[in-house]
Amino acid sequence: MTVAATSIGTPGDLVSATASDSALRRFLHGLPGVDQVGAEARVGNLATRSIKAEAKRWALDLAVRTIDLTTLEGADTPGKVRSLCAKAIQPDPDDRTCQSVAAVCVYPDLVAVASQALAGSGVAVASVATAFPSGRARLDVKLTDVAGAVEAGADEIDMVVDRGAFLAGRYGEVLDEIRQVKGACGPAHLKVILETGELATLDNVRRASWLAMAGGADFIKTSTGKVTPAATLPVALVMLEAVRDFADLTGTEVGVKVAGGIRSAKDALRYLVVVHETAGAEWLRPERFRFGASSLLNDVLMQRAKQRTGRYHSPDRVTID
């Protein structure tokens, strides 16, 4: 299952791989294939891990701290974003020990609102950009989109890769686009959305992960949340293996963000187990791992309350976002 760094090559190989289109293709197609049945069996096995008591409390707190609280709807308003920001800063009004979430993720036009509402709170502002969610726009439009979001105060940019180009095998084009967006980000962190639901195979997920990391991604992210299937455990496993191998090869630690379809605390704990068992404990922090979610936070808060009070909680007692 695991890919030893030696099978990928040396840091020099990665540099030379990005030198030309044909070298890049050779490198990506030379990556070891993913055994899909093995990946599913591995995550299936990890999903049965029992997390109880103290470990569960710790994991639930970590889940809160790693959430990018997200609202990406056409009907979003400044008021909704402000109330989401208030929740991001103080997720559980009944429990002052509950820490803030990692970031609030919005569309570029609402970055200024979020940035103002979160000023001084330590919660980052993330913005999707580059013609999210399809990524189908001219490159100059995408770069303007990114620059506008950064200027408005975004600390993190979630870009979508051009799946059309990737699936057609125009890897050089995708790499170039990621690099240019990275340049436009300036000080902001770049998360590259692979949209694994459209990549069809785990081999493609592995290739796209390496491509994004070679392009300078600070994070690789599973999905936009607008396509089904969104995040799945096997996909997360493959991406976590990729960041682990990339760190072994280059010394650069890239983060992973899983987004879309993660609604229950139980699911979140399963992802945390896979992170721990694949990339290692050093990935279990907001700088290296994120959940992109909206309804997940409420379920985690309800589970925290259950741990605290011993009573099963009610959705009536958490906010409707």
Binding site: G310, R311, Y312, H313, S314, P315, D316
Partner: peptide
Amino acid sequence: PVLADHLD
């Protein structure tokens, strides 16, 4: 007791 405690 579980059902009596349950807030939902």
